[in-house]
């Protein structure tokens, strides 16, 4: 047993943390190798395993970074599976931003049955919850062709593409994308979608762990410095015990994510059982940490001006992304039967 990360991963995490503290842009992340760490050597990267994904997203969550790294990993993964090494290379270099459009209205967290259909070099349909599509140069779209779900490349600024974009609860943007005979390049079958979403779910979980660490530290700072009744409020045992419970639950969540990281490369049933175990637990803990942090801070945490606000929203959104606590609980039960 060894619960320490490799030297390479530790170095990547450290330099990513320092870069994010300075305020990083997309080029900085590419240069640092953050995007390359999401892909295996075969795919043109130098990572791509569970622990690589975990260290990267933990740092992004810790910093509250809104750059579309998850989208790059998810869309890029599908491009790699389609044998498009050329596009993956541009993505890793930071020259191309891509996002995956797979969700549809009415499906909640299910992957299907989808209705978007391909016909004669075009796709038509409605894609929901597409993250950071407004700044993407390529939409990777799932659509039915001859009764099979396949993956297509669509130019988000091309004809037949309409986007309605709003800010996203976790940061960044989220779009409803309407495709009306949008020209599309066939990329291949979508049979690896579940395994790529498993990796993306690990990313959301690890991101939440990093965010929880920051939120815990902010709350601890506040408990030490905020005085009421003549003493720091952290001297009140009622708050001490609640803070201790939060710390315990974060370590539980971290352990679940480590467990998932180590099983991400396993065959589907084992992998997905760990995906759902971790995501269900993360969903529960993310709400707890956000709610307790706000409550223990008091009114100041209700304000947009205080730095906790976007982090609390990010934790809230973590449960609503890629399957919530209950959706994964039910899936875990099915997979354990």
């Amino acid at each position: 047993m060894d619960f320490t990360h490799t030297e390479e991963r530790r170095m990547l995490a450290d330099s990513l943390r320092r870069t994010l503290e300075r305020g990083a842009d997309w080029g900085d992340l590419a240069e640092l190798g953050v995007l390359g760490a999401l892909f295996t050597e075969d795919e043109g990267g130098f990572g791509g395993h569970g622990y690589d994904i975990a260290v990267v997203f933990e740092e992004l969550g810790r910093a509250g970074c809104n750059l579309p790294v998850l989208d790059a990993g998810l869309a890029g993964g599908m491009l790699a599976d389609a044998g498009r090494a050329d596009l993956v290379e541009r993505l890793i270099a930071g020259d191309l931003k891509a996002t995956l459009a797979y969700g549809e209205p009415g499906l909640r967290y299910d992957l299907g049955p989808i209705r978007t259909a391909a016909n004669g070099g075009t796709v038509s349909g409605h894609k929901s919850f597409v993250t950071n599509a407004d700044e993407a140069g390529l939409l990777v779209v799932t659509a039915l062709e001859d009764g099979v779900v396949k993956v297509f490349g669509v130019d988000p600024r091309g004809p037949g593409v309409t986007m309605m974009t709003t800010p996203a609860l976790m940061g960044g943007t989220i779009s409803e994308v309407t495709l009306d005979r949008a020209p599309a390049e066939a990329l291949g079958p979508a049979e690896t979608l579940e395994s790529r979403l498993a990796a993306a779910t690990l990313a959301v979980c690890a991101d939440a762990i990093g965010t929880m660490d920051t939120v815990r530290d902010m709350t601890l700072d506040y408990l030490r410095t905020r005085k009421q009744f003549g003493v720091p409020i952290g001297k009140f045992q009622a708050l001490q015990h609640r803070m201790a419970d939060v710390a315990i639950e974060i370590e539980m969540a971290r352990s679940a994510v480590i467990n998932l990281s180590g099983h991400l490369d396993q065959a589907a049933p084992t992998r997905d059982r760990h995906v759902s175990a971790a995501k269900s637990l993360i969903g529960r803990t993310a709400h707890l940490v956000a709610e307790e942090a706000i409550q223990m801070h008091g009114g100041i945490a209700m304000t947009e001006e205080y730095a906790l606000a976007p982090l609390a929203r990010r934790l809230t959104a973590a449960d609503s992304r890629l399957g919530d606590e209950d959706w994964h609980l039910a899936r875990f039960i099915r997979l354990s039967a």
């Binding site: 709003t166 609860l169 989220i174 959104a317």
Partner: peptide, 11 residues
């Protein structure tokens, strides 16, 4: 919030 599922994300 739980009931609306992923519609919680547009904010």
């Amino acid at each position: 919030l739980r009931a609306i599922g992923p519609w919680a994300m547009p904010f």
